[in-house]
Simulated scan of single mutants.
Amino acid sequence: MAEQVLAVTEDRAVNRGLLTHAGHHLLVSSSIIPLANKAQAVNARFPAYDSHAAQQAVAADPSLLVAAIKRHRKVIKENGGVKAGNVRMLLCPLGYRDACFAIGLLDILDEFGRERGNVAHGAGAAVVNIPTGSTELARIAKIIPGLARIDQYVPRLLLPA
């Protein structure tokens, strides 16, 4: 889903000169990252939050947004986790906030990720309780409504900034 948001955002910026809501958040997020590193912070600037100015900048030259999208695609590719931190790393730079997540979803994902890690990485190190099919189905049934709520927010992310 994050990749789809990036694809639409990139297409609208490059082919139409339009900045989506997700694109604006991604630009702001990628501008803040260098401020956390002393060596990079010397030349970094806190980003402007003026969406109109950002829209004009992207229309004139979408390369900054394309570079931010490329960096975020790398984050997506390298992320194999399902815990709350992994989900936030993928979605928050696109504009998702905790209010976008169903109540309890992040806790359920943390539990699911912990159990998944125990099975995937615990083999041979200790006795691992492999979950039954019905246990996994029940766990997935708890997660699906929360994922549907995440999907419902996508159209807002793709609106012009």
Rank of each mutant, 00 (worst) to 15 (best):
A84Y: 14
P131H: 05
A99D: 08
F46E: 09
G80T: 12
S51C: 09
I32P: 02
R71I: 03
L91Q: 04
G95F: 00
L157E: 02
G81V: 05
L18H: 15
I32C: 02
A48E: 08
R12N: 06
V14C: 07
S63M: 03
D151E: 14
V82K: 13
A99Q: 12
D110W: 04
L18D: 11
A99Y: 10
I32R: 02
N15S: 05
N118L: 11
Q40Y: 02
L94E: 00
I76D: 01
L147C: 03
N43T: 10
L18W: 13
V58G: 05
T20L: 03
E136M: 14
V82Y: 13
V127D: 12
H21F: 09
Q4P: 05
L94T: 00
S63T: 14
N129R: 15
K70I: 04
R71F: 05
L18C: 12
R139L: 07
A84I: 12
S31D: 02
K38H: 14
P93Q: 00
G17W: 03
A2Q: 11
Y153V: 11
G81T: 03
A125E: 08
K70H: 09
A138S: 07
G85W: 00
L105N: 13
N129H: 14
I140K: 13
P145V: 10
S134L: 09
G95D: 01
P62C: 01
A148V: 11
A39I: 11
A54S: 15
T20F: 05
G104A: 05
Q55P: 06
L106C: 06
P62K: 01
S30Q: 13
L94W: 01
V28N: 10
Y153T: 13
A59E: 09
V82N: 10
L147I: 14
R12C: 05
I130N: 07
I143M: 09
K83L: 07
V119N: 03
I103L: 08
I143W: 03
R139M: 08
L158D: 04
G80P: 08
N86M: 09
A120D: 11
